[in-house]
Design a protein around this nucleic acid. Sequence first.
DNA 1: GAAGCCCCGTTTTTT
DNA 2: ACGGGGCTTC
Length: 749
Amino acid sequence: MKDRNREWENLNEQQKEAVLDDSAACIVNANVGSGKTTVLTAKIHYLHSKCQVDYADMVVLTFTNKAANEIRERLSVRAQEVESRDMRYFGTFHSVALSLLRNLLSVEQLGYTEDFQVIDPEEEVELALQVIREQKLNIKYKNRLKKRLEQEKVSRCQDDLALLRELLQKEKIRQNKMSFADLLQTAAILLKDISLRIKWIIIDEAQDCDRQQMDFVNALKQKDTRLFAVGDPNQVVYSWRSGAWNVFYLLKEQYQARELSLPVNYRSSSSILEAAKRFLQNGSQLTGVRETGQKIWLREQYDSFQDACCLADRIRELHENGLPYSEMAVFYRLQSQSAVFEQVFERNEIPFEVSLKKTIQDIPVLNWLMKLLRFSANHRDLTSGQLVLSHRNYGAGLTENAAGKLLREWEAADKKLEQGGGLAGEDGRKARKPEQGGGPAGEDGRKARKPEQGGSPAGEDGRNGRTQTELLQKMWNFQGYFAELEPQNLKEEELWNYFQLDRHLHPTSSAYPEDKKLVMELFGLLLEDARTKQVPLWEALTDFLNSASLYGINFLKTDSANQSDTVKLMTLHASKGLEFSHVFITGVNNGLIPLQGKGFEEEEEERRLFFVGMTRAKDELELSYYTNPDTIRTFPGPSRFVRMIPPGLLQMDGDLPEKQQEEVNLKELKRLVQEERKAAVSEAAERERSRAADGPEPESEKQHLPELKKATHPKYGTGVILREDELMVTVLFEGYGEKEFLKAFCELQ
DNA sequence: GAAGCCCCGTTTTTT
DNA sequence: ACGGGGCTTC
């Protein structure tokens, strides 16, 4: 047992130092592939088994659920005695905040009740739009409302944005809802009042922390709490989400943190690592331990279609040589670039998986259904209720205003009823419980009441009137109806029938079979959730809705489950944190990689992004660029990033897909060379003229022009030097065009 | 209300 | 480079 618990002794020196570090605050600069998660889990394990720190006295914060799960899993493997309830404060910033708010903090102080709902950003925008409509606020640029609300600074533009912020905050409290930001903020506020005896705070991917997250950490931290953060400033690729700021610097300043680093990369071959190093920012120390490996393949392609065809062949070839599909990945800059690869791979029968953020919100029927459930779970959630009733496909044919009015009437009637005591519950048809439910039927007046229908003006709407109020009534009575039902006896069909979904999902429409399937699947997940947790459906629903916001719902599970050995297609951003034996980065053209940007800072982020992409590769990396790009704002030819890679590390004489293609390219190359020559001649003439006019020209230009220096390259033959500085030489070769060389690397004469 | 001008976003995405 | 939206001007 003891021996198994001393695993940290197998780490390298720097890793060990980080694990054993006992400073009040420590920040570890963990380079790419240097065993960041290993150190993190080893540290947690060390603290527990060697320093007798309970897991419950540690807060371990990650950005994604995936990362949190990985840490938890690795710990369970290391130490069998760990139970998940010990790790109650292991999770994303938001999930830890949520569990604190649910279990320890008194949210009542801020006007919430303890069963508050978590809403995702889209729902928050919907809520904001509703407030704007109802309060008749003057808000400009509604299409960018989300971004405008996020921004902390006061807008220059003259509208009611500040007022909206205020009213939105009040409305969220009224409806008992917290946005993601509210989770962190309210937790930070309420933490000030209590004394949580947290001994260690451990942060993963600290470079991605934003203001709110740092405030939350600050609120968690007490005088004797130790802070251990791990991150890599060279992997900042999401700075556009928060204001770009240096967390490392901030942590050092604020807590006088000790700074350590993990410089050894265990992942990539040294060719790949050497090339990637050119994209490091501040001369970070990064060393490899692996063999040289293959050179980086650089391929010229006519366009993305040619590229996809070529990759399909290449992937098949690699697979035939024994490399599993799952060890290969194709990266691109934009989501829209995936389409060509999907089509071509499909046709070539190459199994693949595209990583895309498909959520239930993208499926209209489920989006509607979730709102229906939200309102059923929380009658104060007028926004959801309104959208359910006024939905143009599945709704009850009400306008937004009419729905809002109706809901407010029900709410008012409800309040009256609450004061006057329950006189409802006797309406068997609408609020009865199923036979096998057993419990004392319908008498839970407080929950299953029904306001009197007579006074409702919406009822005048004849034919639709009944449907409207029936759907509303179903949502309203849901809690009472299902309150004490054990989920074991429940079937998806009962939920379907309860809400009379046949009526709302239009059995005659072509989408109906698919819609019904999806709805049943979602009900299935909800019931399964309730069954595993062994709680009544009612209780399970609130949890289910919150975790749907915070963790998403795995709907595409079935798609990926039937094939596990697949090539992964994803954006460079999505590749962060992953590794593959063989990586293809496509569309390495100016305008795409780096993406057409404005400022210098944005280009630095693009450089880090490319760095992240390259360093995903363990053994082989292949880059491709287009001569006739089909993406907008993309320039033909290799990206300037390609030129930052030492030519000695590149394998360029790629096999062009077809001979014909080769001829086209040669022709084009010749034309380009000729044009360049013409331009050079006319430029020379221009300078000659201006020199004659302005007198003697500066020294540098004089050297440059009269006679072009020549250079000889073992492969390209003899050419003329066009440009030269202390680092690079640009030479024009007959038949090859312009080539740039790093002086230190090339064998030029 | 049409015409012209200015500003901004366009891309990446987790919770 | 282009389009949407807001604002000013006539």
